[in-house]
Design a protein around this nucleic acid. Structure first.
Lengths: 227, 227
DNA sequence: TTAACATTCAAACGTTCGTTTGAATCTGGA
DNA sequence: TCCAGATTCAAACGAACGTTTGAATGTTAA
């Protein structure tokens, strides 16, 4: 038995996950048939049910594989920044960058299929199926709580519900930007060139989000009076 | 023949469109079967193919019915504002409000099923199927061009590509906010109460978007140097 | 070599899908 | 009243779906 033939464990599992990632991104969950998927993965039709149990379980596995490490990285980055700052408060923009950077770094990473995943992820926040949305929510929960307290510390003067909404807006901007990589031309009116240079995009996105987060508080009394 | 029995033209057509709007929102396009849809509309299974030709044509009709008037309203509102201002430049926030308001007013309108449509629309910008995305893009194109020149007039100092991206971000924030009406609790950690009071949401969203649009220009030279 | 286990395979299962068909029914003007 | 066109209806079509099955093959350790 030669060295070449030492088979990595779960080889088919990984091939299936890779194929699923790409096809789910291209066609969505329902339009991706097990027959097309297993063919692309070079596996037998029954392989998905053997290795994952069902198509739904495969979908869950696709998200767990990348989302867990990604959010762990976000939290670690935040820990690092806070340690580095000693007792001082973090700049809101630094917190934003810790969150946004994780997504954009994955886009840049061309050798792992992260770009497919990020686009897929960005679209799945608004998936019709509730159990899929709640899976995503569950996988995000720890990081979300961690970043929320970080923002609270950085912006002690901001009312709680206001912060919740602004985080919601920021999260949405990121999600849409990553998912809708081709709708820029809707506005530009032409094909994007190198518009998805991740580094430039990160700078633009961070500037936009930081300004939105720090926007002057609207006078909610005005709104209530007008109503 | 009594007055009551005067049948409005295209009655079934309308019932089908209404049912489609609600079911597409609840389950997505593919998970909504013609059998469920026609049953909800109180029509025969063959009715969709008779009145619209195919399921895809029905999807298109669902969007055309509401999107065309909505964008026409946006443009009319912008015309009104510019006429009102005489020759003076419009405030960027007023332009934003003209765009955002059209969506939020439809959410509030409870008697027409606009709320379903808006959620459906918000998610469809990132639909996997390219021909659906390009349909939406085509329906938005006139309004998008109109608002782009309005922003250019209001912000003459902003570089063109920068404006394109910031409009992209704003559009995305709006789309996500409308589509993901239940992910706020992802951040809040609890059920939203009256969180979707449209008027309060409009104030919050406009403040966020205006600040983001007017964010200080990042030094793109820095980014290029670092790369 | 053998036995136990893990994986792959071709084939079939029952179900559901969008669409089509041709007859039945309704509608409005001659 | 009668007829042409519009609409509705029950029934069926072939295709594609996710999943299951049981045999075949590959792998590992005694």
């Amino acid at each position: 038995m030669s060295l070449r033939s030492i088979k990595p464990p779960h080889e088919t599992r990984t091939r299936i996950l890779d194929a699923a990632e790409e096809l789910f991104m291209q066609h969505g969950f329902e339009s991706t048939s097990m027959r097309l998927l297993t063919a692309k993965a070079g596996a037998n039709l029954a392989a998905v049910n053997y290795h994952f149990g069902s198509k739904d379980a495969l979908i869950e596995a696709v998200f767990r594989r990348r989302l867990d490490p990604m959010n762990a990285g976000r939290i670690a980055e935040l820990d690092r920044l806070e340690k580095e700052a000693g007792g001082r408060a973090l700049a809101p923009e630094a917190i934003i960058r810790a969150f946004v950077g994780a997504s954009l770094r994955m886009i840049e990473d061309s050798k792992c299929g992260g770009r497919n995943f990020i686009r897929l992820l960005g679209r799945t926040y608004t998936d019709p199926q509730k159990h899929i949305r709640s899976l995503i929510g569950q996988l995000y929960a720890p990081a979300m709580a961690r970043f929320k307290t970080a923002f609270e510390r950085a912006l002690p003067q901001m009312p709680g519900d206001e912060l919740v909404w602004r985080m919601h807006f920021m999260f949405g901007t990121l999600a849409y930007t990553l998912a809708a990589t081709d709708t820029v031309q809707l506005i530009a009116g032409c094909k994007p060139e190198d518009r998805y240079d991740a580094r430039l995009l990160e700078a633009r996105l961070t500037a936009f989000l930081a300004a939105g987060l720090l926007a002057p508080l609207h006078d909610s009394a005005d709104v209530k009076k007008a109503a």
